[in-house]
Write a protein that binds this DNA or RNA. Sequence first.
DNA 1: TCATGTTTGTGATATCATTCACATATAAAA
DNA 2: TTTTATATGTGAATGATATCACAAACATGA
Lengths: 199, 199
Amino acid sequence: MKRLFTYRLCLIGFKRKGFDRVYSYTLGESAGASAEQVRKDFSIFKITGNKRGGYKIDELLSAIEDIIKHQEDQYMIIVGMGNIGRALVQYKRFKLRKMIIVASFDVDPSKQSKRWNIPVLPMEMLEDIIKKFHVKIAILAVTEISAQDVANRLFDLGIKGLLNFAPIILKTPDDVVVNNINLCDELESVIYYTQKVLE
Amino acid sequence: MKRLFTYRLCLIGFKRKGFDRVYSYTLGESAGASAEQVRKDFSIFKITGNKRGGYKIDELLSAIEDIIKHQEDQYMIIVGMGNIGRALVQYKRFKLRKMIIVASFDVDPSKQSKRWNIPVLPMEMLEDIIKKFHVKIAILAVTEISAQDVANRLFDLGIKGLLNFAPIILKTPDDVVVNNINLCDELESVIYYTQKVLE
DNA sequence: TCATGTTTGTGATATCATTCACATATAAAA
DNA sequence: TTTTATATGTGAATGATATCACAAACATGA
């Protein structure tokens, strides 16, 4: 599944370079997987190519889109307007992927201005917005101190998917999906493997 | 390896809550792994607990630190002062983990002010800084258009580890470690699994 | 001090993921 | 049209990870 996203990325790259076909070998090379891996992955999802001719990039891309599909706009909120929250609010790429941030929230009233393209609201308005836009997905970018409390509140209000930037493993109900991004750990992992490569 | 970071996170959490011991079951529960998994992981790294008494959190933590170890400060640079670059420059947590961002870079002269605690320099100064601080690790937060070019330049200047936020799979020399973070994909993956959980 | 219940540490086993190997299809060239 | 070289698609083999099952250790309470 993770690889599907990588393939898509590579395919977009190939398309930009003017190709209209790829071979499992080419794609694998660029995505960091073996050719067989690529073909197996596709066969699992019943994506089929052309013997001898490889895969047509456009067909492949739309097949992948179908699997990852959410054709409709996905409304989302961001909670926590610190460094990361602010960066994400302004991140333009979300819109291209039909991911719409309808509002952001922060406890700090001084952050509740409308300097950004998206309103920064007080926490009391969480319920209103979530109900109004039927928000199911939230981005959590608060401190680790308040992360669990805020998360609980979001779960109570019906949030079912969370992208969590707080450096803490949240306790979550079974029917909620959480994806943790810990920037320090990601960097630390780079450092670790770099040191290993350098013997 | 990935789990080691998760364990550390959980252990810090337990410590904050006042515990001084954990059991494989407790830790696994909180880290999203089975108890056996936790013990196996530890046994691989020769981390040993106390039968019946579990593991002492402090000992465990320092054992994990030893494995992930980089006791010395790690000097790093950030290239690209867009939304993400700016957020990372201000991200305070890096310092706590001995990861020091010595400078950031951007092609856009208008961004080369000293508003931040860290200087924003023109690309021409890359070599100077990398040489001066013996920088081996870089964070890439430029657009996908220029990402490959900038990356190549960094590799030429001796960068061996890269945390890449550009939505592109980079071509890299064998002795370079790259860790990709694609925010859209991370969010999309949340959406995907959330839809799945909701049947 | 001893018995007891609990938790670790780890081979054996099972599950999952990747690679191999090759039959099959087919685009392109002759 | 026929040949041929090249890719796919997929079972079988291998390798990697996770779970099971249980003996050994030892805190704790009687």
